[in-house]
Design a protein around this nucleic acid. Structure first.
Lengths: 369, 369
DNA sequence: CGCTCGTTTTAAAGCGCTTTAAGTTACGAT
DNA sequence: ATCGTAACTTAAAGCGCTTTAAAACGAGCG
């Protein structure tokens, strides 16, 4: 039970050190001014009293709060990773982070309101779903950085990865392994999926595989990926029979209007890829022996030894650093023109991709260390 | 670019409404006192000005901050779920939540410090790893609620699920399905694993299956679960051959000193169960045909249609509500004696458990709606 | 020595809101 | 009319810290 013995105030430290609160304040924040003797006295007093500044009071007195507000989707592992790096980057620049999770019962608007109440100096929105108009409106009152999403809203900074190029990397990798029939499992409607699909189409055309293009409906989660498996001309039974399924009995005409069976699939993201993988394997399709699969996000799950999914990384560290950088540029360096920073994604080759038709060799290309 | 047009202060609202700041403050916080006319005038003025109180100033002036600090492990989906419910529960009681994530580069201590700086009135620690002594020390200065972990630290409130009973439920379920050889995949050293293991042992004894007990080393993640598969006398090849493995060729003597093959496995948590599942299936073992598997946590991942794992739920909603309740009891109702709240977990039956030796029927018992 | 200048220290004025105690008003009761 | 009281309203004192403007103190100099 906290006895709340009136936690020490700055005044207590000051009087104990025999100086004014002004000097004490200066010393404790490491500002120049006070002489060596004063300095030491204050520091000692503070230590002895176990003093810790009341942030609320500091914030009120200071004009600045040095607070960056971050909205995130708690259920997204990608956001969780970003958060880690954001925290580190902010720390380095002397900022603190307030995170405001959005949940089923607490939408993005609500999350943002909460951040405004905290008087954050800039808002970093991870994968915001707010319409551009609203983003733009918000940007008139606050510094806002949209992370991981393309945004055509005036005034907001954007830090994102070149998703089209990322999918391009995946396609090139597969083509390098001899694949030609490469399908794409689409994501949920939105700017991100559009861009990734575009990347797929362009890459296929560029590599002379325009005729082999196949985009099937999907989504952003495991279930969508699993159901996408059914839509692929992969000779799967209509309903998945769990357990000992008969091994792949050869290509069979599918409903999708294309008869050739893809030997490789690029999925919208890792979660979809995971669902797809699971469904394929349960149906006796060997990955990567029969089909190679590439995900997107290089999420935690892709890296698991038991999953070992080849994936495209959005390099969260770089994104986080860039996002914080964007915010501090505005706050500390007076930048006023919005910027859009597009980072180049990286392909991380793991065990779900192999040379075409190769039923024994696993993987290919550079393996992660 | 934020033009920062001097956001309106309470004084602005007050003068526009033609009243004092005192009245305005009262009205805006819905406190009794001001008459209807004043009320309306203030509300109108506030609306017109787009006024929003400066939380920092409010906090400073009020003695209370109405803030609950939560530490969590961002990478834990269980924590993410808890957070959702915590947020809702806190909201209901007029508290706000500050979350302080712990990451690789920011340990629990650091996370707590940050919360203290925010002047939180109580600390809710999700699955704290701090040693009991440190918890106890913290509890002398602050109200602290340890969530999801047993703690023998004086002064801290504890809200957790009866993990031993939870594992008991799993065992009973399996026995009800005719299983007798039920193995347990252990978790990482710590109070949680100890309790669950205990639950397993007791249940087995209670059901007259003391001789069939088998505990194998495991851990808290997918990899540990996968490697546990090797330690089970399940006739698995020493190295997992990915892809088309020969189907299970019958019981084979294993290294573990017990020859009978378990027909069911209870894993320390869902992640371990997942690794185990994956390894088993890749080796041609049918789940639940050959072996039933039960996880723990009823995490997001267990619920995925593609995973559909029978699991024990720690009922996060109840835990979250109880945790917030514990905090508010201390803050608002003057409770000073520490409490330990032990919630009864629930078994959620899904598709990874089936009657023993039943290679066709899936599941058993009550299915989730 | 008296004066100027640079360095160190501090008194005091807030930051924007809450709250207490005192002040008004209005009104029915005496 | 007069008083008491209930119902509002408000002036003013902080909350704990930062910061500005001015004071204090020496040192250096003519």
């Amino acid at each position: 039970m906290p006895s709340r013995p009136a936690r020490p105030r700055l005044e207590d430290v000051a009087s104990r050190a025999g100086v004014s609160t002004a000097s004490a304040s200066l010393v404790l924040r490491g500002r120049p001014g006070p002489g060596a003797a004063t300095r030491e006295a204050v520091l000692d007093a503070a230590r002895e009293l176990g003093y810790r500044a009341d942030r609320t009071a500091s914030l009120l007195a200071r004009r600045r709060t040095q607070l960056l507000g971050v909205t995130m989707d708690v259920s997204s592992t990608f956001h969780a990773e970003l958060l880690e790096d954001l925290q580190a980057a902010a720390d380095e620049r002397g900022y603190d982070i307030v995170v405001s999770p959005q949940t089923r019962t607490r939408d993005e608007r609500r999350a943002i309101e909460s951040l405004l109440d905290f008087r954050c100096e800039a808002l970093l929105l991870l994968g915001p779903r707010l319409p551009d108009a609203e983003l733009a409106a918000l940007a008139e009152e606050q510094h806002v950085v949209a992370v991981g999403r393309r945004a055509r809203a005036t005034g907001v900074d954007v830090v994102r990865a070149a998703d089209d190029a990322g999918v391009g990397l995946a396609v090139e990798h597969l083509v390098g392994l001899g694949h030609r029939d490469i399908a794409f499992v689409d994501g949920p409607r939105g700017p991100i999926a559009t861009l990734r699909r575009q990347g797929y189409r362009r890459a296929m055309k560029r590599l002379g595989l325009a005729d082999e293009m196949l985009v099937v409906d999907g989504g952003g989660d495991e279930e969508s990926g699993a159901s996408a498996a059914a839509a692929l001309p992969l000779a799967l039974p209509p309903e998945p029979s769990r357990g000992h399924a008969a091994p792949l009995s050869g290509p069979r005409k599918a409903t999708s209007g294309r008869s050739r069976m893809p030997s490789a699939v690029v999925a919208f993201n890792d979660r979809a890829a995971l669902g797809l993988l699971d469904r394929l394997r349960r149906n006796g399709v060997d990955v990567p022996g029969d089909v190679s699969v590439v995900g997107y996000d290089d999420s935690f799950i892709a890296r698991l030894a038991t999953v070992d999914l080849t994936s495209v990384s959005q390099i969260p560290e770089a994104m986080a650093t860039a996002a914080v950088e964007a915010a501090t540029q505005r706050l500390d360096e007076g930048r006023t023109e919005p910027i859009e920073l597009v980072l180049e994604p990286q392909l991380v080759v793991r065990g779900t991709t192999a040379p075409r038709g190769d039923r024994t060799t696993r993987g290919g290309g550079i393996r992660e260390p």
